[in-house]
Computed example of a mutant assay.
Amino acid sequence: MRINPTILAQLQALEPNATFSGSGSRVSSSSGNSYFCKVGSAFETEQYAGEALALELMHAAAPGLAPQLYAAGTSSGAPYFISQYLDMGPSLSDDAARKLATRLATELHAFKDPQRRGFGFERTTHCGVTRVERGWWGTWEECYSGMMRQLLDGLARKGSGEVVKVGNQVVQRVIPALLRDLEVEPVLLHGDLWTGNAGVSRSTGEPVIFDPASFYGHNEFELAIARMFGGFPQAFFDTYRAHYPPAEPKTEFQQRAELYETYHYLNHALIFGGGYAGQAVSRMKRLLRYVDKDDDDSSD
């Protein structure tokens, strides 16, 4: 199979004395290295750039936890991307899950923006196919509110009336109640950590995560989508919390978890429709009842 000329030129710069062959997105060199290579369309340029920066930062924070980026850019208006190719094995075992949780808690989620710009990210990213306009905010409350509003705006354009109405109430009432007084630092997140974006390297047996939607946020956000669709054993969550305990107030950890899960249910509703909107609404109404209860208690 003929290798894209842009990709071939970049690979030859990486290994001047090698020859290359490949099929699809996997290209192998005569030296034994394998590369994951892709070329996109012009409208995907933002997405490629966001993923490239995320992988660079993740490698700096936790070498080997994500595929190493070798080259990225544009050629004739089309984005390209070359990273380490990983031959992935079966789903996470308890042992691999513990290793992943430890590396997340002690390495990736210990990494802070060197310029200390706050919560957010410097480039637009994509969570699935959803474009997420990034920027910088001084507080986690502001950052998360902005993320939620983007999804609600998208759902409003699709005519999703009830979910948007309830979601706006969550932004106005629940987010301030649960996030305003949190004392948390912005740390680097993968941003879309479900089982489809995690696995085990066949060559090393080590856990690996990929396809990031990174930004600097509250570490507990990372655990939300991991809980939603199964596949992460309980050992993952137990190990993570042992290394990185919940923020204060710990008594509201479950409510924060449901608030963060809501983001992903809304995103799935935006992408796929179906029952995801209903699942988001049920969680949001439960959160609204929780903050209303707190308001009633405080007025006694």
Rank of each mutant, 00 (worst) to 15 (best):
Y240T: 05
L69T: 01
G217Q: 12
Y244Q: 03
S299A: 14
Q169R: 13
V281Q: 08
D294V: 09
R283L: 15
S31P: 01
L155S: 06
S201A: 09
G191A: 13
A66V: 02
S25F: 12
K99H: 12
N4W: 12
K293Q: 14
F36H: 07
S299T: 10
A66Y: 00
F221L: 15
N168E: 13
H59Q: 08
P5E: 11
H109F: 06
Y240E: 04
S203E: 15
D113N: 15
N219G: 11
A60K: 14
E142F: 03
P233S: 13
K250Y: 04
F221N: 06
V163C: 06
L151P: 00
E56H: 04
G138Y: 07
H264K: 02
V166I: 14
V164T: 06
Q169M: 12
N33S: 09
R256P: 09
T124D: 02
L155I: 07
F111T: 14
I3A: 07
H126E: 03
E133F: 08
P245L: 11
G275P: 01
R286S: 13
G24Q: 08
Q68G: 06
G278W: 06
L188W: 05
Y80W: 14
D113V: 04
V184F: 04
P16C: 09
E122V: 02
F236L: 13
G118P: 10
S201T: 11
F121I: 10
K165P: 02
H59L: 02
A105R: 05
T102R: 11
A18G: 01
L57P: 00
Q254G: 08
L182T: 03
Y144P: 02
M228R: 07
N168T: 08
N219V: 11
G274L: 11
G24M: 11
R256S: 11
L104Y: 00
F215L: 07
S21F: 11
V174P: 00
H268Q: 05
K250L: 10
L259S: 10
D295G: 12
A72W: 10
T204Q: 14
S30I: 05
F43K: 09
F272I: 00
R116N: 15
P79Y: 14
S28D: 08
V166M: 04
G159R: 08
A226V: 01
G77L: 10
E183N: 12
F272W: 14
V187W: 07
A110I: 06
G159D: 03
A71Q: 07
R289P: 03
Q47E: 06
P246A: 15
F272M: 02
C37I: 02
M228K: 08
G118M: 08
P5I: 07
A49H: 14
K293V: 03
Q68Y: 01
G191K: 01
V174E: 00
K285G: 07
E56N: 08
A66S: 15
S76I: 04
Y265D: 03
Q234N: 11
